[in-house]
């Protein structure tokens, strides 16, 4: 009877290799990369209250704009323009942070 292939003959030996010092270099590269951005703790519940306050503030600003609009200059503007302008003024990192935190928030997406 033909003898089956014996796994013990090879064990965990593999033909794959890595460059010299690869694992240390990989660790150094990853450490450098993770230091670039701080760890963002994601605790969604804790963001509800400040966010709600933020939404109220935006709503209040909009209401104020509507009330003051007749006396304001003729420059075409609205609340969203201000919000967009403020968002555009943030750094790319802060924009990414805001998007990550608020993108699926029910208050922002109602």
């Amino acid at each position: 009877m033909e003898k089956d292939f014996d796994f013990n003959r090879i064990g965990k030996r593999m033909p794959y290799k890595t460059p010299e010092g690869f694992f240390d270099e990989m660790e150094a590269r990853i450490w450098k990369e993770v230091q670039r951005e701080p760890i963002v703790p994601v605790k969604r519940k804790s963001y509800r209250l400040p966010l709600f306050a933020g939404v109220l503030a935006v709503a209040a600003s909009l209401a104020l704009l509507l009330v003051l609009h007749p006396f304001a200059s003729d420059e075409p503007t609205d609340g969203f323009t201000h919000v967009e302008q403020a968002f555009a003024n943030l750094s790319l990192e802060d924009q990414a942070y805001m998007l990550e935190i608020y993108q699926d928030d029910i208050f922002m997406n109602e």
């Binding site: 593999m14 794959y16 290799k17 990369e33 963002v40 994601v42």
Partner: peptide, 25 residues
């Protein structure tokens, strides 16, 4: 062992640890 290519394995391993480190909380 899954992707075979060293370069691809390096990139995927690096991405794995970045994800682990940034989201371990």
């Amino acid at each position: 062992r899954l992707v075979v290519s060293h370069d691809d394995a390096q990139d995927a391993a690096q991405e794995t640890f970045i994800r682990v480190f940034r989201s371990f909380r």
